[in-house]
Write a protein that binds this DNA or RNA. Structure first.
Lengths: 167, 167
DNA sequence: CCTAAATCGGACCCGAACGGTCCGAATTAG
DNA sequence: CTAATTCGGACCGTTCGGGTCCGATTTAGG
């Protein structure tokens, strides 16, 4: 339940790009030097992001990349799905790859679709705009950084309704 | 952004166990035959779940496993964390493994903690009790199975506040 | 009390996908 | 027209997940 390194790098790079001007065009080399992501990996990632429609690429001597949309209209879910495919908890519910061993008597599949939508909503609710903010003064609402390193405790009723992601 | 096969298997097996009686004790072999999970994998998973405190193990001839708590007090987050470690989107924010390459000038790290809490809340809001329900008559509320196979579209403002997971 | 069956628990091995690197093709400034 | 700088795709190594096996432990039955 954690996103891959590539997705993490993509988020960092997109954030760095969003911190620049809106239509400003900047190269993969520049972003690599600024974020610390290895250059070839950065190129690969920006290629994927461009083919996904999040970045507009321009080739040539003074080419480079730029955000295809305003930072407010790009969400974390967009970036994650662009890099590591559709967000579906189980491969039973992603449209392809119907080679699940359980298959026949699996009474959980329909519920997984709902949970996947919930996670996607949680990631879709946070935009690049909110990520560019340098630091958040008040955490969220009396819940600074809860529940780390408890390996198997209960999280039930942690948040009865909704998750409370900042807009 | 998808959980591993082991976590998926664990959810299926826990659901199958919850569909039985509360204190009923049942062996790994039985659960394997019922769910379709390979037996050795089932043993391994149940061992992990037992050491995490979700199952109570009893060795011996008539031994087996049983739910350590009522199905209502076990959430998806519990199972996932028991199998594949703490739920943290980036390894920057899981307490250990501080070997991130970006490290120094990473302005995204604090936000990731919040997003991780959001995902954890989404998974913690759904309990085993709700997964044992055979089928849900009405999907959620006018949102049956939205947004599949759109590779890079916008998910912004998908759900303005909260995610709407059934209790 | 002893035997035997069935179980849990840990150690080993294989495979696939992620992650990283490289080089070629295309395009535009000079 | 030349050349510099860039994007785009193809290749390979490595780590982690996934599967299998065998030994240690415990309890029911004789």
């Amino acid at each position: 339940m954690r996103l891959t390194h590539l997705a993490d790098y993509a988020v960092v790079m997109m954030t760095a790009a969003a911190r620049r001007g809106d239509g400003e065009r900047l190269s993969a080399t520049e972003l690599s030097g600024e974020t610390g992501v290895p250059l070839p990996t950065a190129q690969k990632l920006m290629g994927k992001l461009a083919s996904a429609g999040l970045l507009s690429s321009a080739r040539g001597a003074a080419g480079g990349f730029a955000l295809a949309r305003p930072a407010r209209d790009i969400s974390l879910a967009d970036i994650v799905e662009a890099v590591e495919g559709p967000i579906a908890l189980t491969m039973c519910s992603d449209g392809v790859n119907h080679d699940c061993v359980l298959d026949a008597h699996c009474r959980v599949k329909p519920h997984m679709g709902i949970v996947g939508d919930a996670v996607r909503g949680a990631l879709g609710a946070v935009s690049l705009q909110s990520l560019t903010a340098p630091v958040r003064p008040e955490p969220v609402e009396g819940m600074p950084f809860p529940s780390r390193q408890n390996q198997g405790q209960s999280f039930d009723r942690l948040r009865p309704n909704g998750v409370g992601v900042p807009s």
